[in-house]
């Protein structure tokens, strides 16, 4: 008995060390970036890398002044939040209808919606670019909101559908029998029960919109540029040096990473798309 116990403990120690080792290795680039953001440019490229140094906030000031961080951040917030809300408003009724009044075509419809995601963005770029040019939408937040909404719609419908499908049909029927109108049924029963699903779907789309780079780069470079495009402007040779780049990167990813940390449990559950019961 005692040998078995000690064997168990050894395996636990091995597993603990291995898991922490892998996690830290994967997280290392982000830690290192965070540290570099507080170095001077010379310290940043020192070989071997410095671990003890006097931290400076200089980089953040420079980034803020040189690139108008707030403007980009504001664009990111507006485009990702508005597109997410808009997407939820369109996707939720569709998902509700498919989950609660399924027809023979429901499965096919879902697959079709998903198949639109297989259409590569480059395939749509030129026509969209030209259409938006016609309507004077190039480099506007409106353009990005439209694109981000469309881009995330299939995933939203799909995720919400899997959430709604888990809500027992009979509960909605009970509400109907209790005399609830469609709106009351939605407001008092479906919304409270589906709020978790709506939240994690919204969060995922927020992350996807925030991080989107292809459309943001091609449609919104200057006025409507998001943080993703701000970062690209730093990649050009005449851009900032590595320490300032780290500071800018940190500022670009921090909001969404923090939100992600707080909601990761929900988010991961949603991402399984009903693959996990």
């Amino acid at each position: 008995m005692s040998t078995k116990k000690s064997k168990l403990t050894t395996s636990l120690i091995v597993r603990t060390i291995a898991a922490w080792g892998i996690a830290l290795m994967l997280f290392f680039p982000l830690i290192f970036m965070g540290i570099t953001a507080f170095k001077t440019e010379l310290q940043a490229i020192a070989v071997p890398s410095l671990w003890a140094f006097e931290p400076t906030l200089e980089n953040f000031h420079v980034v803020n002044e040189r690139s108008d961080y707030m403007q980009f951040a504001w664009n990111s917030v507006v485009t990702s939040v508005v597109s997410t809300v808009l997407g939820l408003l369109i996707a939720a009724p569709a998902a509700y209808s498919m989950a609660f009044s399924p027809t023979k075509g429901t499965n096919g419809l879902l697959l079709w919606m998903l198949s639109t995601k297989f259409m590569p963005a480059v395939g749509a770029l030129l026509p969209i670019y030209i259409i938006f040019q016609q309507f004077g939408l190039l480099d506007t937040k409106t353009a990005l909101v439209i694109i981000f909404t469309m881009m995330n719609l299939p995933i939203m419908v799909w995720m919400l559908y899997t959430y709604f499908k888990d809500i027992p049909h009979e509960i909605l029927e009970a509400a109907r029998m209790d005399g609830a109108s469609v709106w009351q049924e939605f407001r008092h029963v479906l919304l409270p029960l589906g709020i978790g699903g709506l939240a994690s779907t919204g969060l995922l789309c927020l992350v996807l919109a925030w991080n989107e780079a292809f459309w943001a780069l091609n449609l919104g470079a200057a006025e409507a540029g998001t943080l993703a495009t701000m970062m690209v402007s730093y990649s050009s040779p005449e851009g900032l040096f590595w320490a300032k780049l780290s500071a800018a990167s940190l500022m670009a990813i921090a909001p969404i990473v923090v939100i992600g940390w707080f909601s990761q449990k929900q988010l991961v559950q949603g991402l399984t798309f009903g693959a996990v019961k």
Binding site: P168, E170, R176, D178, G179
Partner: peptide, 15 residues
């Protein structure tokens, strides 16, 4: 909702 009938479901369907 307009029929004024009440139903007890097999699964109870409580909120």
């Amino acid at each position: 909702s307009k029929r004024d009938l009440a139903m007890v479901f097999q699964s109870y369907a409580l909120y």
